[in-house]
């Protein structure tokens, strides 16, 4: 384990910020270009994970365990969000026989 953690010695904090930015933007692009509601959900998971990684990197940088506790709370929140979201998707599928978000663009109007 010591060998592995030696490998981050010297990675600038900026590079962690860049990596998280790129992954967050990939999540945003996924939400914008896909029509399948489940893939949109997966993009949201990508965004949450990018933020988690950045919080951990800052936690190590400032030598403060609070950041890693925040990540723990975000994971609990993501689990709740996925459970509710997938239940909603199952319900939508029961009504429309599809998970295409374009079918629901006007809700019930």
């Amino acid at each position: 384990m010591e060998n592995l953690t030696q490998s981050i010695q010297g990675v600038p904090l900026n590079h962690y910020i860049l990596l998280s930015t790129i992954i967050f933007a990939i999540g945003v692009i996924g939400v914008l270009i896909r029509r399948n509601a489940i893939v949109i959900f997966m993009s949201i998971e990508l965004m949450l994970n990018a933020v988690n990684l950045l919080l951990t990197a800052f936690s190590v940088h400032h030598n403060d365990p609070a950041g890693q506790v925040f990540v723990f709370f975000i994971m609990a929140l993501a689990a709740a969000e996925v459970a509710i979201g997938l239940a909603i998707i199952v319900m939508i599928y029961r009504n429309t026989n599809s998970t295409d978000v374009n079918i629901l663009n006007k809700l019930k109007w």
């Binding site: 384990m1 953690t5 981050i8 936690s59 990540v71 723990f72």
Partner: peptide
């Protein structure tokens, strides 16, 4: 996370 030594996470 392993590389950041955040083993719990």
């Amino acid at each position: 996370y392993i590389m950041l030594n955040a083993q719990f996470l």
